[in-house]
Design a protein around this nucleic acid. Sequence first.
DNA 1: GTCTATACTGCGATAGAC
DNA 2: GTCTATCGCAGTATAGAC
Lengths: 172, 172
Amino acid sequence: MTDKKKQILAVALELFANDGFNGTSTSKIAKEAGVSEGLIFRHFEHKNGLLNALVQQAVERIRLLIEPILIETDPKKVIQKSIDLPFALPESEYPFWKLQFKLKWENDYEQDKMRPFIEKLTWAFSNLGYIQARKEAEVLNHIIESISIGILREGRKSQEGLKEFILRKYLK
Amino acid sequence: MTDKKKQILAVALELFANDGFNGTSTSKIAKEAGVSEGLIFRHFEHKNGLLNALVQQAVERIRLLIEPILIETDPKKVIQKSIDLPFALPESEYPFWKLQFKLKWENDYEQDKMRPFIEKLTWAFSNLGYIQARKEAEVLNHIIESISIGILREGRKSQEGLKEFILRKYLK
DNA sequence: GTCTATACTGCGATAGAC
DNA sequence: GTCTATCGCAGTATAGAC
């Protein structure tokens, strides 16, 4: 992957996240990336190719993000790390995750990338003696998702107070 | 409001929810609504006027939706009705709420329409003896938001099992 | 640079309500 | 006879994909 290609993707990501796919023109991407518009089509064929590449990246990034949780063997740590997840996102990656959350509303977006994460949470709750471990996991996953959305939309600070509160709720 | 005007709004809602604002052309709206394109502009001035009208409707619908909760005087019923909220949405209104959730990602969308709802939840938890009533309310609000999203994306059934579970969690 | 899509305008015409 | 809601369609200007 050449530098210019990376640069195009980075700019496309930022613009798609802010203005939406249809709200972003290829010419604007080219200008902001400091490349000719033609180069975009050389690398990605059509505008949609840009989006596809970005979605592909998402699969890998999600995997990396939840991997430390999946290999954790202490159930309490699983839960603690899970709650920490949205707060640990580097701010530089906010546009990336913003785009993913927006894309979830598109009909052809493959859902369920978080399935193994929920399984692991279920395992953790089960291990801690919760009867309805699966539901407990789903609820916590809901909380984490919604907090993530809050952070991406209004910044980490808007949610920070909740972290300790939830940790205590689950790990007392 | 004439029938055709209503029809235009209904179609615009559906298309905006599915294909996004920028992804929907006024000519397509006109065709699907069975009206001339000119009529759209006669009634709404510009394409954005359509969106404004839809957002205006949202304010009112949200008010109607949470009103029964706001006037409730029994704290347990407040919580019970709140949890029931996303499950009680008529399926015919799903596109409407879908659009609202999508719009939340736009920069100029006025957030915080749910503020009074959170206040009421806080009041309820406070009344039930919870120490950190405010945080408790925020967490439940997160759960309800995320469940709503799940229902809008994957249907009511995908979340139904959680309802009883959460009710019991909070009202036992 | 080319070509298409799209927001928006303008206007003549019709049919029904009062 | 006027007013209002509508149609149908020609036309302009611009943006945007390629």
